[in-house]
Amino acid sequence: MGERRKRARKSHADLARLVLDMTRERGMRPGAHLSEQVFAESCAVSRTPIRAAFKMLSENGFLTARPGGGYALAIDADAPGALATARLDTQEDALAEMILADRAARRLDDAPSVSFLARRYSVSRVAVLNALKILQAEGIIDRLPGQSWCFRPILDTPRALADSHQFRLALEPQAILTPGFALDPRRALVLRRQMQEMRAAGEGRIAAAAFARLDAEFHGLIARGAANAFMRDALLAHHRLRLITERDSGVPEFRLRQSLQEHLDILDSLERYQFDIAADQMALHLRLSRNPRPDAANRGGPPLLRLPGAALRAGPP
């Protein structure tokens, strides 16, 4: 598959995932009609890519084509596993995704061999190599001399999460302050609508995975606006890593809505060209987003009296 076609497919797959998230946030039931116009407006794209996303969802069983034209929701979006969308990926992307998921789930060693991976996934060595090259480009695995590959650190331990937080706190506000920072206004508009819609979703309707995708999009938008190429690239690579390996889903819904509001406030400041305020808001947002977990015992255990100034742990004891 050519690079352009691959990119187009990935873009349609991303849009398709967004459409599915929205059906759930809107509480749509099986059989509900999906309007091209409405979803095109919500996603701030033309009807052509929406049509392509609908077609992809229909081909993968999420939607059904109606005899008279248009599409209806074919699944119960609230049912467990209903929105598992790995089948929207290309074969190579899907394999890369599986390898990464297995790495994050601690099923694979630090340096798996190509032949082991080929056996595990029942695919050819060439397919494994292609998937590993995708992960290499994402900065997730390194090729060592010879035929071996070695995973780089991912966000799978309390320490790694703490390091990630520190890294973002150092760079993200500074990215906004780079002279020449420029927000992509079209993309900002799209994200604003999506975040407003998610924030307005009913109680219990915000899915952690959908939030994580939107959160990565927002922080990616900020990174792309930086006028410093090294900062931009470092942040984009890190946000990709977060999206695919961070698996902390214990954030209460109240905080998710609050976090979306903080994103919107940052966008407001950026659109008013108040970059110093936006940078401060970003620092505050990141500090508030550091998910605290108690340093305390269960019932029956004496509580740990934490001294003032002691650092929060990134994960539960």
């Binding site: 331990t157 889903s249 214990g250 977990r293 539960p316």
Partner: peptide, 22 residues
Amino acid sequence: VGGFPDAYRQVPDNVYLAGWFP
């Protein structure tokens, strides 16, 4: 697995670990 994910290796295919679940 709380704050101890580092303690686990070779997790079986039917098992999923996390430090926190809602």
